[in-house]
Amino acid sequence: MLDILKALLPSICVGLLFWYVIRNIFRADRNEREQVDKYYSEIDVSESENNSESDVKMTATKTTDHEKSEHGKGNAPRSHG
Rank of each mutant, 00 (worst) to 15 (best):
L2C: 12
L2R: 09
L5C: 01
K6F: 00
A7D: 09
L8D: 14
P10D: 08
S11I: 06
S11G: 13
S11E: 09
I12S: 02
I12T: 02
I12V: 11
I12F: 02
C13F: 01
C13Q: 12
C13H: 03
V14W: 01
G15K: 00
G15Q: 04
L17G: 15
F18Q: 07
F18E: 12
F18M: 05
F18H: 08
W19N: 03
Y20E: 10
Y20G: 02
V21R: 15
I22K: 03
R23N: 09
R23M: 07
N24Q: 11
N24A: 10
I25R: 01
I25Q: 01
F26C: 11
F26W: 08
R27I: 05
A28E: 02
D29Y: 07
D29H: 03
R30L: 09
R30I: 07
R30C: 06
R30A: 15
N31A: 11
E32S: 11
R33V: 08
R33T: 11
R33P: 00
R33S: 13
E34I: 15
Q35W: 03
Q35D: 10
D37W: 01
D37A: 05
K38G: 15
K38A: 14
K38S: 15
Y39K: 07
Y39F: 03
Y39V: 04
S41N: 13
S41I: 09
S41Y: 03
E42S: 07
I43M: 11
I43A: 14
I43T: 07
I43F: 03
D44H: 07
D44C: 15
V45P: 05
V45N: 08
E47T: 03
S48F: 02
E49W: 09
N50K: 10
N50T: 05
N51A: 14
N51C: 13
N51R: 13
N51S: 09
S52I: 04
S52Q: 14
E53W: 11
S54E: 07
D55T: 02
D55Y: 04
D55Q: 09
V56M: 08
K57V: 15
K57M: 06
M58F: 10
M58K: 12
A60H: 00
A60Q: 04
A60W: 00
T61V: 06
T61L: 08
K62A: 02
K62G: 03
T63R: 09
T63C: 14
T63P: 08
T64E: 12
T64D: 05
T64Q: 03
D65L: 02
D65T: 00
D65Q: 05
D65K: 01
D65A: 13
D65S: 04
H66W: 07
K68Y: 01
K68G: 04
S69E: 07
E70G: 06
E70N: 13
H71Y: 13
H71L: 13
H71C: 08
H71N: 14
H71G: 14
G72Y: 01
G72D: 04
K73R: 10
G74M: 06
G74Y: 01
N75A: 02
N75L: 02
N75K: 07
A76P: 03
A76Y: 12
P77K: 02
P77H: 00
P77I: 09
P77V: 00
R78D: 12
R78G: 08
R78K: 05
S79D: 11
S79A: 06
H80L: 11
G81H: 10
